[in-house]
Structures are given as C-alpha cells and as structure tokens.
Simulated assay, not measured.
Amino acid sequence: MKATAEESQSLVLIVDDDPFIRLILRNCLEREGYQIAEAENGIEAINLFEQLHPHIVLLDAIMPDMDGFECCTQLELLDCNKHTPVLMITGLNDQETVDRAFAVGAIDFVTKPIHWPVLRQRVKRLIQQSQLQRELEAKNLELLRLVTIDGLTQVANRRRFEEYFYQVWQRLKREQRPLSLILCDVDFFKLYNDTYGHRVGDRCLQKIAQAFQDIIKRPGDLVARYGGEEFAVILPNTDTKGATHVADIICHAVRALAIPHQNSQVGSYVTISVGFTTEIPQPDSNLEEIIAAADRALYEAKAAGRDRFVQNILLPKSKNSR
C-alpha cells in the first residue's frame, strides 16, 4: 500500500556513506511517494536536518568520522527534533548494538541486508505515529489555552493569573528583583450595562482588554481579566517608576478609546480606576500582601474620584512585627 496524500508530502532524510545503498533506498521510497534528501555523513546530516526538518531519518549505524550513534545523539539535542523519528540501519543484530541504538534516541531499527517490505512498513508507521503525536500535542496546547484564557476578552483568566503570579512571585523572591502588580476597574460599569445593555458592555470590555494587550508586550508581563469588569497586570522585574509609567499609559489608552458613557459620573466616556504596588518579595512575605496592597490602592483611586491611578507602597516588615 502506497503512502496517503498527506504522507506523500513527508520528507525522508537518508544518511549513509555508501552511495549505492543511498540509491537503493531512494528508489524504494520514491516509489512509495516520499520526498527524499540525502547525506553521506553525520555532519552533513545534521546540517540538512536543521535546514529541511525532515519527517523521518534513515540513519546508517556504521559510518566514518561520525557514526550513526553519535549523529543520532547530536540530532536529539536539536530543538527542531522533537517529534522526528530516527530509524537506525545496522549490519549488526546483537543485543549491545540494539540497546545502544535505542539509548541514543533511535525509535526503531532494521538490519542489513534490508528486507524492503519491512522497511516500507516501518517508515510508514513511524511517520504516522509522528504525525499523530504532533496533532495530539497541538490539541493539548489548544485545550491548555482554553482553560487559561478568558473567553470574552481573550486575555488570561483568573486561574491563569493566580498560577502565573505564584510562579513569578517565587522566582523574584529567589532573585530579589522587583515585582509590580496593577489592578484596574472600569468606572461605573454597572451603569454602563444598565444604559447600553450587556452585549455592548461585553464589547466595551473587549476593547479595553485589547488596549491593554497593545501596551503590555514584554514576554514576561501578563494581562488578565481578574473578574467582572476588573483587570490585572503582572509586571515582573518592574520598579515603581516603570509601574507608574504603565499605569499612566493604560489610563490614557482607555480614555483614548472614547467609548461613550452618558451616565458616567466622571465624564462622558468610559474610564478606569487603577491601583498598583511594587515589592521585592521577601522570604517572610506572601503574595496575598501585594494583591491586598494593590487592591487598597484601587479603592483609594475610586474614593478620590475615579479615572486615575494610585500607588500603595508596601513598607518593609520590621523585625519586631513577626
């Protein structure tokens, strides 16, 4: 049975120092519909692997300079080799050789002289298994995304916020680096929903979340929907000056959206209140303290008239306070 249309697009990298063996392998596999690339030694194989990203490697065990075992070991170290099977071709069938082949990362092996029907079936099976593994990983990543992303705003959800905040907290506690947390609340959002309806309210939250995403772009930062109309921003390795700058920008960005809010008590457009704090996590502190400090700052921003940001400075604990 020939390869399916999908499998026919699969690229097989043949690695053998014997040109005659490479020719026979090429002819055999091309008849099955596979695309072929060839390398005559281990070094060339590694270079071609990085360039072409083949779907499977047929690797001769015994070659000069770099043998198949060393080549397989090197291929295993490449980031792009996550799901690429290596089928070792060896003239030896002793226990030590077989164990060594699997130890260096080969998925399977065939012995010389090659039994061609066996080779064809093993190549087909290994490519299918590799494709299924890739598909499964992609589905698992999508499931992980679904359970950590807020369905409405497409930013991180509360669960992801709590998980990530704990990870960052622990890391920065070890590194003794600053961590800033910003909490935001859409001003008079209940009145907004009462005035325009919940669907329009949903679109309002989506626009605000997108504005945050457009601003918060560092790989380590995180924007999350903290609840209802509340958002949180985690800023690792960010001092007070940096957090103040971000708080100012996001307040301005929401104003710049110019989303009409005729019943707002601070103007005619949607605004946000922001509270934030910065701390270098200490061995005797906990992450609940920084959340509570940011929440108090948010409350102060609301009490002071909304449409503004307020910082709450966490004072170091005294030795006698424990």
Rank of each mutant, 00 (worst) to 15 (best):
4 T>F: 08
20 F>I: 14
31 R>G: 15
32 E>G: 09
36 I>V: 10
36 I>E: 05
47 N>G: 01
55 H>N: 15
60 D>A: 14
64 P>E: 05
64 P>S: 14
67 D>K: 09
71 C>Y: 09
84 T>D: 04
84 T>K: 08
86 V>D: 09
90 T>M: 08
91 G>I: 12
92 L>D: 01
92 L>C: 03
96 E>W: 00
101 A>W: 02
104 V>H: 07
107 I>E: 04
109 F>R: 06
109 F>S: 08
113 P>S: 06
116 W>C: 15
119 L>A: 04
141 L>P: 02
145 R>D: 15
145 R>W: 11
149 I>W: 00
156 A>V: 04
157 N>H: 01
159 R>D: 04
159 R>P: 07
172 L>N: 10
176 Q>N: 11
176 Q>K: 15
179 L>V: 07
183 L>S: 02
191 L>K: 06
197 G>C: 09
199 R>P: 06
201 G>F: 12
201 G>C: 11
204 C>K: 04
204 C>T: 05
212 F>S: 01
213 Q>C: 13
217 K>H: 10
220 G>F: 00
221 D>S: 01
225 R>D: 11
229 E>P: 06
232 A>W: 02
233 V>M: 11
236 P>E: 05
246 V>Q: 01
252 H>D: 13
265 Q>K: 15
268 S>V: 10
269 Y>F: 14
270 V>P: 05
271 T>M: 11
271 T>R: 10
275 G>N: 09
279 E>P: 00
286 N>G: 00
287 L>R: 09
294 A>Q: 01
302 K>T: 11
302 K>Y: 15
312 N>A: 07
